[in-house]
Computed example of a mutant assay.
Amino acid sequence: MNLERLVLLMRAVVTVIGKDAVGILAKVSTKCAEYNANVIEVTQSVLQDLFAMIMLVDITKLNSDFATMADGLTELGQTMGVKIHTMHEDIFNCMHHI
């Protein structure tokens, strides 16, 4: 019998908040790519000069551990003058489960 290997998709939620500037989406998605994290979905809004973005990222094939990626994104945000928060989907689901 041929048993197929079950591959679980692991995802993370990345939020970015700050003053709008050119290239925020490009820089954050490039940083994700450096960790081999694939951006699945993105929503963003600009309200006057405030930029807000939520990304859903596939972290199944990360080339580092999750904490390293999260720290790298936080550091990127600091250099860009925005706040970047990265949360594993499991934690996100537990926080928002009713």
Rank of each mutant, 00 (worst) to 15 (best):
M1P: 09
N2F: 10
L3C: 06
R5H: 02
R5A: 10
L6K: 15
L8R: 15
R11Y: 03
R11L: 04
R11E: 10
A12R: 00
V13Q: 06
T15S: 14
T15I: 04
V16L: 12
G18S: 01
K19Y: 00
K19A: 02
K19H: 00
D20P: 04
A21E: 00
G23H: 06
L25R: 03
L25F: 08
A26I: 00
A26D: 04
V28Y: 02
V28R: 09
S29F: 07
S29E: 11
S29C: 12
S29R: 05
S29W: 03
S29H: 05
T30G: 04
C32Y: 02
E34G: 09
E34Q: 14
A37T: 04
A37V: 09
A37W: 07
N38A: 14
N38S: 15
V39Y: 12
E41S: 10
V42T: 15
T43C: 15
T43E: 14
Q44M: 13
Q44C: 13
S45I: 13
L47I: 03
L47A: 08
Q48L: 04
D49R: 10
D49A: 07
A52C: 01
A52T: 01
I54S: 14
M55G: 13
L56C: 02
I59E: 00
K61L: 13
S64Y: 05
S64Q: 03
D65H: 08
A67S: 06
A67M: 04
T68S: 15
T68I: 13
M69D: 01
M69G: 08
A70M: 07
D71E: 15
D71S: 15
D71Y: 14
L73W: 04
T74C: 01
T74K: 07
L76T: 09
G77L: 08
G77Q: 07
Q78F: 13
Q78P: 05
G81D: 04
K83I: 13
I84A: 14
H85D: 14
T86M: 15
T86K: 10
M87R: 05
E89G: 03
I91N: 11
I91L: 15
F92N: 02
N93G: 06
N93S: 11
C94A: 09
C94K: 07
M95T: 03
M95Y: 01
H96V: 03
H96N: 02
H97S: 06
